[in-house]
Each structure stands twice: as C-alpha cells, then as structure tokens.
Design a protein around this nucleic acid. Structure first.
Lengths: 251, 251
DNA sequence: CGTATAGTTGATACCAGTCAAGCTTTGTGG
DNA sequence: CCACAAAGCTTGACTGGTATCAACTATACG
C-alpha cells in the first residue's frame, strides 16, 4: 500500500470534522445561531478579528478544567462537548452538552475560574473568544453586549429547565426530554428532527439526567418496545414525537 | 382608643421590614454584596439614579410571573423571595431563594420574558433596576458591565450547583446542602452562621430540593435526633457544621 | 486474537413517594 | 376573647421506581 495516500492523523481529523481555520464569522454557516446573531456586517468583522481558531480538539481532550483560570468563552463549530463537575464524593455530574453553534464556558466569569470541566465527545472545531476583548468590544457595540447577555440568560434558563427535569421526573421523562432537546437542536442546525445521533455515551446520559447507566439502557429498551422510538446503538429515531412530548409533560 | 396612633397598613409594614425609600446605594448596608460592588463613589451615584424603589412587597405578592414582559432585574434589600416554574403537569419547581443583597430576574433577558415567577415569602423591600438603563450605563461604566456579567455567571454556577445536588444525592444531603447555603448567606450578611431562620415553608423546601414535604420533615427530625441540629418550627440551629458538611460531601 | 470499553439484561434491596391520620400554628369572624 | 377553619407540619404503614450487584454480549482497538 502506498503510504502517501495515508494522510497524517491531524489532517484526517481536520477534514473529518469540516475544520477550516480560515473561515470567518460572516461566512460560517452557524452565524445565525452563534454569537454574531443580529450584528451588522461591519460589526461581524470586528468580532471576527478577536476570535481565535485553534487546532481541532480530539475526542476526550479537555477544552478547560474545573479550576482553570478563565480567559475565554468558546463556541462549538463542529463536533460535540460535555461540561461536567466532579463532586467531592467523586461522582461526575454532567451539566450540559454543547453542539455546533452553542457557547460554553459562561460559568467561569464570576470568579475568573472555570466552575466545570469541558471535554470533547468527538473531534470538534472550536472558536475561542477571549473574554477581555469581548468585553471591550461590547462597549463599542451595544448589540453585541445585548446578545452576549442574552446568551448568558439562555444558559440560566437551560439550567433551570434541567433543574426542573431533575426535580421529580421519572427516568422515562428525563430520557425523553433529552432526546427532544437534541431533536430541536438538530432542527436548528437544519438536520433531521427525527433521526438523532447521540454523541455521548449511556454513562454520560446517566450522569446528566441523574440516572445510572443501567436505567438509561432499560428506559431506551422499553421506549423502543413500546414503539415510540427505534434505537441502534447511538442512532435514535423518534417514531412518535407527539406521544413522547405528552409523556414528558403529563405527571 | 385614639385612631391617630394607628398608622396605615402600608406604613406599618414599611417600618417592620426596615424599608426606607430614601436610602441610596452608597448608604445601603448591602452595597458590599449587591450590584454596586467595586464601583467608584461617583459611579454609584449614577447607578443610584436609575434604581427604582417601590412599595414593599407583601407576603405572597408576586414580583413578576412566568411569561411577563422582562423590563428589569431586582435586588432584594430585606425579606426573602422564591423563584419557581410551574411544569405542564402542574408541579411547582422552586429554582431559587433570594435573600438580601441578591439579584433575581436574570433569566428573563434571553427572550425578553420572565422564565419563572417570583413571589415574596415575607414582606420584602426590593430595588428595581430597569434593564435598558442598566445596559446603557454599563457601556459608560466597564466595571459595572463586568460586575453584572459576574452576577449572571454566579447565577449559572449556583444553578449548576443545584443540578449537581439534585442529580443523585440523598434527601439528607439535599436538606443539609440547603441549610449550609443559608448559613453562609447569613454569614455574608453578618448574621449568625449557626442560627438560621427559614423564610420558606417545608413545602417550598421540598419543591426546591425535589423532595416531598413528608421527606423534608422526616429528614429534619432525623438530623435532630442524631444531634446534628436543633429544629424549632422555622428556626434551625446547626450544632455540628463540620459533621454536616462531611455528610454532604461523602457519597 | 485478546483485551478493554460500552452496552444490555436480570434479581434483589432500599430510599423516597404515596396515602392516611393527627397535631400545631395562624388567621378570621362572631 | 373564643371558636373554628385553614394551612403548615409531623408521623406511620405501605408501595414502587430506581440503584445496586452481577453476569453476559457487542464493539472497538492495538
């Protein structure tokens, strides 16, 4: 076999995740849902100038760790990450999954130290947005300031949604809520709302929803048996989204 | 009886909750933990000018409701409030308790509509901070902008803390975690760290911690029986804070 | 091909929920 | 000031959903 056709690992992954370091915010297909939303064309260029586009993050590589000095927030361009905290007892609580177009790292502003760790679930392309530069730019661009505040407020709402979910819901309701969330986020990226690829393991799902792996597995099996969805390892097809939504909402 | 010595209700309550509408941020004893933190003296005056100090909020009166148009964030000057969401199934999930010096309403910025309701647990004095004015002032005062972002980030951290708590902890761990949180917030107000007055009902505690009233009650009884604390209706005395902290941390 | 990791399935145990009853405190109108 | 109602809180008996422990299968990887 000619070794020349085997590309180096880095390059291969770069291609696989659609990574292109030269792309600018104005051209990014995610600009409609990411930070530049609602900015004028000229403004976008300025934002563009402060954004760092590093090497793609390999699976299992950390973007930052709990306790790290906070210097930037991050936008996911491709791939997927999870954010998690480790309790004193050693348990891992996943606080969120981040998909293309979403911003993470917002919990580090308060005490200039990340309050959670973030790790890539698969090879991911990330835009790094240095916080100081963003702050300064916000002063000159009120629309950017507003939009950033809205992103933070959205994170608060999402967290409160999860709090509500963890408060009293059954295993099935939790699992379904996650699937429906992933579905609508898929749709926002103009992907299928019924066919979902789970970038995270069953264990991650459990650590997010406050369930054990076994319960997650059993729950998916049961939902499949009941004809509400079809599971094939990490591929899920929602067969009856209406019925699923009702299950989440009804006590 | 001379009717002149009977003051009107509003005035009586005003006195009871220490309400004084003429006080300014610079003179407020909470300025160290509230929004003006880290502002210069001149800056505080400017912030002061945009803040509205309305009538005190009576017990059970709503500050805002889920779905209301978002116009302002609120600082608690005295009293206590709870924020909650009502699920489609009719269940009430309390998302936070707010004590003097704390800011609430931050989840409404994202879609300009409050994502939760806020209600007074007892007569409370509230500072209303109109959001548009705060935004404009932030542009002129970078330290204010920074501080406000930190407040939002703090809310995110707190919510994630609660997520972690609700994820897998036992009833006792949840209850203790709340008591310790109230204790440290008491201390921040230079009040006792061991003697706590609970402004909320057992039901509220349950709806916050994802437990039933019965479980909250039983848990407090057991902790008292074990000599870790003393409960007298809504007064709690922490007898062994070290042991309590260990119980929360250990799996 | 062997090992490690991820996922599934089954049997059992236990913590918190549910239902029910009674007690305590608070508030209100006679 | 008392009587009563309503709300808040506590306690007990029982139930049930999820965790735990364990074994097994499937998949990925060097």
């Amino acid at each position: 076999m000619d070794s020349r056709i085997i590309r180096p690992v880095a390059e291969r992954d770069t291609a696989a995740c659609g990574y292109n370091p030269s792309i600018r915010c104005g051209d990014c297909r995610l600009s409609g849902i990411c930070l530049p939303l609602a900015l004028e064309t000229g403004d976008i260029d300025q934002l563009d100038n402060i954004i760092q586009r590093g090497r793609p993050l390999q699976r299992n590589a950390h973007l930052y760790r709990e306790g790290d000095a906070f210097k930037a927030v991050y936008a996911v361009r491709s791939g997927a990450l999870k954010a998690y905290r480790t309790t004193d007892a050693g348990r891992e609580q996943v606080t969120g999954f981040y998909l293309p177009g979403e911003i993470l790292g917002l919990d580090g502003i308060a005490d200039e130290r990340h309050g959670s760790s973030a790790v890539a679930l698969e090879t991911s392309a990330i835009c790094e947005i240095p916080f100081e530069a963003l702050e300064k730019l916000s002063i000159a661009m009120p629309r950017l300031q507003r939009h950033f505040l809205q992103l933070m407020s959205r994170e608060i709402s999402d967290d409160q949604q999860l709090i509500t979910l963890l408060g009293k819901n059954t295993a099935a309701q939790r699992v379904i809520a996650l699937l429906l969330s992933l579905s609508s986020r898929n749709a926002r990226q103009h992907l299928s709302a019924t066919r979902i690829r789970l970038p995270m393991s069953r264990t991650d799902i459990g650590n997010y929803l406050g369930l054990t792996v076994e319960t997650v597995s059993r729950t998916l099996t049961r939902l499949q048996r009941d004809g509400l969805l079809r599971v094939d390892s990490r591929e899920v097809e929602l067969l009856d989204a209406t019925a699923l939504a009702e299950l989440v909402n009804d006590g």
